[in-house]
């Protein structure tokens, strides 16, 4: 669960300041999300493929992520062409396939894959920790950044705690069924996980206070912007601007 598969690397993209990557990703993904112009999306896809090549990520792992994303898209293809309506390209007494439905499905498929690839190339090449600090550097509220960093650190622990409780239930022959006893037990499990997580949160806060925490996380590795960062920012923004321009013409 949530191994930072792509974060370790030595490519140019891995060395770019996370703040810059977040800004570029924000614009690129924003444009891809709102446009319905196939040329714009195709160009954005090309940009994301270039980024991916620069990041030198393992192809099979990237493909696996794409398969995961496209498994949701698969269901769109099952329903949208049949239900969207409009000009029909194929018709039987049972069902009909619409032209607009196919176009829309294709659009969504292209958009999703482009966005996933862009995010893998730009954001997954940073560790969550460095993204958290970068967001703080971009003046996002400190609390939100804490929330990101600590969720990442403790989601495993909370999950393990839940598994421990559910194992304990299983060891006493608990078998889920559709009855009040099951609902009650599951509610207890969730409730107990919540209480435990809350208590753990309180203890972690204590541990931080004892080590001189005063509400501000100081990053250990401070990244200084260098020429590569500036050039990358310029290129990223230019590409975004070009896509916007294309969208409106």
């Amino acid at each position: 669960m949530m191994d930072e598969d792509f974060a370790q690397g030595t490519s140019l993209l891995h060395h770019i300041d996370s703040r810059i990557k977040i800004v570029v990703a924000f614009f690129l993904v924003g444009i891809i999300a709102v446009t319905d112009n196939f040329t714009v999306i195709a160009l954005a896809l090309a940009v994301s493929l270039v980024l991916l090549t620069v990041a030198r990520l393992p192809v099979t792992l990237v493909a696996k992520r794409l398969v995961a994303a496209n498994s949701f898209i698969f269901f769109l293809w099952l329903t949208l062409p049949l239900t969207y309506g409009g000009e029909l390209v194929y018709q039987t007494s049972l069902f009909s396939i619409s032209h607009e439905g196919i176009i829309l499905s294709a659009l969504i498929t292209l958009k999703t894959n482009t966005i996933v690839l862009t995010i893998i190339a730009l954001l997954a090449t940073s560790t969550i920790a460095s993204l958290g600090h970068a967001l703080e550097g971009l003046r996002l509220p400190g609390r939100l950044c804490f929330l990101l960093l600590f969720s990442y650190r403790y989601i495993f622990v909370i999950h393990q705690e839940y598994l421990r409780l559910s194992r304990a239930a299983k060891m006493r022959c608990f078998q889920p069924a559709t009855n009040i006893h099951t609902y009650k037990t599951v509610a207890y499990l969730f409730g107990m996980t919540l209480v435990k997580s809350y208590n753990r949160g309180a203890r972690i806060h204590q541990a931080m206070l004892l080590r001189g925490f005063n509400g501000h996380l100081i990053p250990l590795t401070s990244h200084r912007m260098n020429r590569n960062d500036i050039v990358f920012l310029f290129m990223g923004l230019t590409a975004s601007a070009a896509l916007v321009f294309l969208h409106f013409t």
Binding site: T127, I128, A129, L149, F150, Y152, R153, Y154, V157, R200, R203, I204, Q206, A207, M208, L210, R211, G212, F213, N214, I218, L220
Partner: peptide, 27 residues
Amino acid sequence: VGFLFQSSDDQLFSPTVIEDVAFGPLN
């Protein structure tokens, strides 16, 4: 005064070891 908790999971909250050990000195 340093305090070693019963549960280490309550004490180690940074993603990597070096960040966690440096947390106190940074503060």
